[in-house]
Each structure stands twice: as C-alpha cells, then as structure tokens.
Design a protein around this nucleic acid. Sequence first.
DNA 1: CGTCTATTTGAATGTACTCAAAAGCGGTGG
DNA 2: CCACCGCTTTTGAGTACATTCAAATAGACG
Lengths: 194, 194
Amino acid sequence: MLSIEKLNIHFNNFLPLNDEEFDAIASVFVERRIRRKQFLLQQGDVCRHFTFVITGCAKMFAVDQNAKAHNIQFIIENEWATDLSSFYSERPSQLYIEAVESMIVLQISHDDMLNLYTHYPKFDRNFRVIIEQKYIELQDRVLQNISATAEQRYLFFVGQFPHLANRLPLSQIASYLGITPEFLSTIRNNLVKK
Amino acid sequence: MLSIEKLNIHFNNFLPLNDEEFDAIASVFVERRIRRKQFLLQQGDVCRHFTFVITGCAKMFAVDQNAKAHNIQFIIENEWATDLSSFYSERPSQLYIEAVESMIVLQISHDDMLNLYTHYPKFDRNFRVIIEQKYIELQDRVLQNISATAEQRYLFFVGQFPHLANRLPLSQIASYLGITPEFLSTIRNNLVKK
DNA sequence: CGTCTATTTGAATGTACTCAAAAGCGGTGG
DNA sequence: CCACCGCTTTTGAGTACATTCAAATAGACG
C-alpha cells in the first residue's frame, strides 16, 4: 500500500478527507526512508517538518547536563513525530528524535502545514482531536509518575504498549520510565519470581 | 469587566472572534460562582462542561487505592478546567476538580461545544492551538519527572509558576510534585540554608 | 483563647542509584 | 564453525534520596 494511503486511512479515524483534501496532502507530503540510529531531529536544529510514521519506531529524548539521555516518548506506526514547540516557534529544539528501527515516514514542511490549516479547516479539527488524545495519554503518564512505584509504572507501560515492550531494549524502556537499567533488570527479576 | 469579555480577550491570543462568533459564545457560556472546596467534577460523574476560569484556582486530582490524592494540575485565571477524556467519551470520570480558592467560571455544555466546533471552524483552530501549548507544558513536566530530583522539580515549578507557589499550601504543591509534604518541607529548609 | 489543621523536625526504613564486575548475546572475521 | 569483540543485561555491595511514623510547633479561624 502507498504511504499516502496509509495516512489517508489514519485520517478516517477522525473526519475523513474528501478528494480535494486528499490531493492536497498527496501533493505536499514527501516519503523518506530513515535508517536505524539516524536522526529526524537534533538538539539545536529547528524542527521544520511534521512527520507521520508509516513503519518503524523512533524515540524522542532530551540530554541533561550530565550527558544522560531521557526518553520522552516512543513513536510508532500511525503516530506523529514532531517537536511542537520548535515547529511552531521556529526556534532551535532542545530535543532529539532518533530511529530505533529503520523507518518509512511521510513529512510535510512547516509552510505547507500552515497552508493546509488555512485552506482546509478540517485539518484544524483532525489535529485538534489527535492532540487531545495524546494529551489525555500524557496526563495519565504524569499521574503514574507522581503516584506509582517504578514497578507499577513498568507494568502500566507493558499493559498500555505490549508490542513496544518486546520491540525495545531494556535500557530504552528504563530511560522512558525514569529509572536506571540496573533497577529495571531487578524489577523484571522480581516479577518473574512472583 | 464582564466574564464573557475576559473570554473574548483570551481568544485574542489566537484567532480573534468576529461579532457573530462573539454572539455565539455569549449565548451559550454560563457564569457560575464556586466556593472554596466545592467540586466542579467528581469521580464517577461524567464531565459535561468545558469550563473557563475567570478568577480563582482549582486543582485536578486523582485518588489512588490507598485513598491518597495526587494533584495532576492546577488551573487558574484564563485556563480551561475539563477532563477531556470524560468530556468527549461521555463516560464517568476518574478525576476530581475542586476549587482551592473561590472561583468565577464560565461553562459551556457538551452539546453547545460540539455545535460551536461544527458551525464555527475557528474554534477548532483556537482549541487546537490551546491544547498544543498545554501539551508542550505537560511534556516538559514528564521530562522533569523522569530526569530531575524532587528539589530540582520544586525549583522548576516555582520558576514556571511563581504566583502559584505563594498561593498554594505546601501540601498541595507536594502532591503535585509527587513527594510527601514532610520531604518538601525539608527541601525548602535546605534551600534557605544554601 | 482554644481548637483544628498545616508544617516542621527527627529517627528508622525502604526504594532506587552508583559503581564495579560478571555473564549473555549478536555480529564479524579468521 | 568457532573465537573474539563490543554492547546489553545481570548481579551484588554500598550509598543516597525519599518515605513512614510519631511528636512538637506554628498558623488560621471562630
């Protein structure tokens, strides 16, 4: 299946696109292949694209003053990989987005995206709903972070994203949970014993 | 100043409303006065309103199996107080929203809100931008939670919301940071000594 | 002024981290 | 096919960050 068709199917979850709107996205989204360990965004660069993932997986992370990376989120098939803050402000990003598996993505430039919003209000609607859903997810994660132990957060993660837990190395999941790889290893061990 | 005018000024931060759109909101938003400790939403109830805060402050929180409350966010003047998940799904909420100061709010019902979206696409746009900004804030908080110590998170909170840190009791801030009141008290003490 | 709640202080405990070393695992080349 | 390299995961000892519980102190309100 063509990538642009997969994107169209994605929009069917919200307000489906008509022919004119489909033609509009078909003419501005560009397909790119990304190899494992390649970066979609690096700290200091302005995030100039909205990126839709067709296949593969990326991680978004920040690096602290001790050069430690902290995974903010994983982004997989049918999800959007963008630093919203940098994209809209057009200022240098504080974040990295790196492929943890080889990927196929569709990208739209900043200007084309703003055009899409202006000419076809349906995209305002659809992206409003998309981001609202992401907001709810993120709020849930905050609640976990302030109320649950590392073990509970790990179980929650595995429950919410069972596919991801298998696809990713332990160290990446530990970073996402905000704990050390050593400790996550211990947690897994304890769970097996139970 | 009338509450509805304050809401109109709020929208001026995005795409300003024309006369027709202003009349539309003026006819569907209803003012309510809320006393301290009164609830805008309780666990088990469906969140049936979108709520805009004119004055005062509320906390959104969840209660865990040990009956402990965990503050997910504070909501003040010119912010929106809604459980999006419950509002759109029309299913019982897991959350509470309670006034920590007496408040004046403007509320719009679920059906009126959907009407607004349908008849005036500008609201899709404006609320898309509003939620995008909130998403960025929340993502920053997640990064803090997974990467910073309690002391760093406290300093970050005070830096981001200096007004809030004075307005709220220590115990409420501790709950927001995901630590015990005792420990926040110790943190403050250490900071004074430094 | 007394009552109620919030904050502070401190001791004992638990959760999670650091550091170091060993074990496992995938890929590469001989 | 096996030996070796580099990287990830595991294991364990010692430590630091944060919690629990209890009691004392301070503040807020009638």
